[in-house]
Write a protein that binds this DNA or RNA. Sequence first.
DNA 1: CATAAAAAATACTAATTAGTATGAAATGGC
DNA 2: GCCATTTCATACTAATTAGTATTTTTTATG
Lengths: 196, 196
Amino acid sequence: MSKAANTRLNILHKAFELIYTNGYQTTSIDEIIATTQVTKGAFYYHFKTKDEMGVAIIEEILKPTMQEYFIKPTEASQNPIEDFYNMISYLLLEDPFLQVKYGCPVGNLTQEMTPWNNRFSEALAELVDLWKKTIIDSIERGKESGLIRKDVVGEQVAFFILSGYWGIRNFGKLQNDNSSYLIYLKELKSYLNGLK
Amino acid sequence: MSKAANTRLNILHKAFELIYTNGYQTTSIDEIIATTQVTKGAFYYHFKTKDEMGVAIIEEILKPTMQEYFIKPTEASQNPIEDFYNMISYLLLEDPFLQVKYGCPVGNLTQEMTPWNNRFSEALAELVDLWKKTIIDSIERGKESGLIRKDVVGEQVAFFILSGYWGIRNFGKLQNDNSSYLIYLKELKSYLNGLK
DNA sequence: CATAAAAAATACTAATTAGTATGAAATGGC
DNA sequence: GCCATTTCATACTAATTAGTATTTTTTATG
């Protein structure tokens, strides 16, 4: 990777961490360049505006991460119900990057940036749609293999699962401990079993 | 109501609307006093800081509203399952104040202000706890009256319902239309019926 | 190695921010 | 109507903000 591409990625990574922990609006460019040890000239050479950098974070950091860790495993899934539970459980309790008190990066950005910046909305919607579609496909396969009832509607379940995930992340932020996660996961398991 | 108390409430109401539509951090005090037609001196007479005003909004605007419109109706509830559905459906589709693109005020504030301001967290947690407890009580009554299965765990269901609500609000913001709400509501109905 | 283009460094601006200092007007109790 | 207290108005500050203008350095290519 060229040196220039490296500084660009470096900015994106550090900026993402700052935004994840502090929020987008309250993360200043001065703060970003201070922690990346990159000058303002370099920053604005790579990104025309702060918002352009924000969208780049979604497309170049969040999207690939999601592809790798959410989409791929679910595509290979044989037992949807078990895998959905494991996916959410992993994200809530085990993912080494995500922290209870900082919530879900995608959820945070959605909350903070829509509806005021359309480019954010579009980039985020693309992400979420990808995840949603993967879940729906998995459900359809589950229906074919007989692991899921035929009358289950994939899109409904996808919205239900993802909404629950986003929402419980908010509870986590509020209480700053994972006790709500544990309670939520029990009901999630019960709900998912109801799809059998 | 005294004139002074009136300006105070006026500030809180207008500020709340601005914050609901624009976010807390991006709503400036100058903007608030411009729309309220109140001077800076008056503002800082009533509120020592911006954050103190924010907490006052939660305690003096959001909390009473929630008591009136969420808590009371649920307390009088005879058929929890139907009432839960109606409550969420009303909030998503019919409430005249709430708008799809602006999400849930409590959810927005939680996302934006925790974990960086503890006073916000505490005030918001109190709100949400109240709502949660009301749901749990309602479930217990439903269990006694035989409308809900005995093995249903109230706290789990409460978290599940509220999480789903917060999460689908995020979807609404993302897509800026209520199509996701409609799909979500179908699955919510199905889930709630599973509690019978 | 020369040179053009890419990449980065420095110093700046204009606007906006939360908050303050200080004084003026309204209010209520006597 | 006097006067203390409450309530509000005006003018300011110091810090921070995103973004720019300009110059310097690095890089790749012939």
